[in-house]
């Protein structure tokens, strides 16, 4: 695939350094409109660094980050969110001492007209009914699964063109994880574009269209999700042998 307009997100040659440590060494990927793309890899392979760098949360050393053809590399996170890309961070990080309502309200802060935010909110509460039930509860009192739903709904409140999901299964019971992944798949059906970072390979590839495997900060493997699932190469790439 070359750099055509069909790529909503196009990252190439990304490098991230923490002092002397090279976390990402020239990784890249593309996400087309309407796709779910899985970014896989073992612990410490650089998945979160990759997401944080393209979101502007950590500085990138070099690389190109095109969102719908425009270079956003090095911009502030709030500016990138306003351009239409957002991140649902690892570990959920809901605002524990704010109510569910306030968490969602601030998620929709970029929607200037109150009517916009209200319409999106109604949609989110339809899709995540448990959040409607818990509207005035402190987010910190929700269960892990409910917090994950809130974190995803909060990210979707900005009506992003693409959402980056960082480890949505982290620390959740298997039954809850299934529910969350069904909801992620449902988001795609409603037109969302998703870059999904996961350690749980089978689950991620099950709902993804394509996948990339990071090892030691480089893309070790890429391809359609069904092929990656069938080939068994993913396990080998996980071991980090280039």
């Amino acid at each position: 695939m070359n750099n055509g307009p069909e790529h909503l997100l196009d990252v190439a040659g990304l490098e991230v350094r923490y002092g002397a440590i090279e976390a990402i060494r020239g990784a890249g990927l593309e996400v087309c409109k309407g796709e779910i793309v899985a970014l896989l890899g073992a612990n410490g392979a650089g998945k979160s660094s990759f997401l944080n760098a393209i979101m502007g949360l950590v500085p990138l050393t070099s690389g190109r980050v095109l969102l719908d053809g425009e270079d956003i590399a090095g911009e502030a996170p709030e500016a990138i969110v306003r351009r239409g890309m957002t991140l649902c961070p690892e570990g959920r990080r809901v605002f524990a001492n704010l109510t569910v309502r306030e968490n969602l309200a601030i998620g929709g802060a970029t929607r200037r007209r109150a009517g916009d935010a209200a319409t999106i909110l109604t949609g989110m509460l339809d899709r995540f009914p448990v959040l409607a039930e818990r509207h005035d509860q402190m987010a910190g009192t929700l269960s892990g699964g409910e917090q994950q739903m809130l974190a995803i709904a909060r990210a979707m409140m900005s009506a992003p063109r693409i959402v980056l999901l960082d480890e949505p299964s982290l620390g959740l019971a298997p039954r809850i994880v299934d529910t969350i992944f069904e909801m992620i798949a449902a988001l795609q059906h409603h037109g969302a574009t998703i870059l999904l970072v996961e350690q749980n390979v089978d689950l991620a590839l099950d709902i993804a269209d394509r996948g990339y495997v990071l090892a030691s900060g480089r893309v070790a493997l890429a391809g359609p999700a069904s092929e990656l699932l069938a080939s068994g190469d993913v396990e080998r790439a996980y071991m980090g042998r280039d």
Partner: peptide, 9 residues
Amino acid sequence: PVTRLMGIN
């Protein structure tokens, strides 16, 4: 950091 992810300046 997460507040900035909400698009807040």
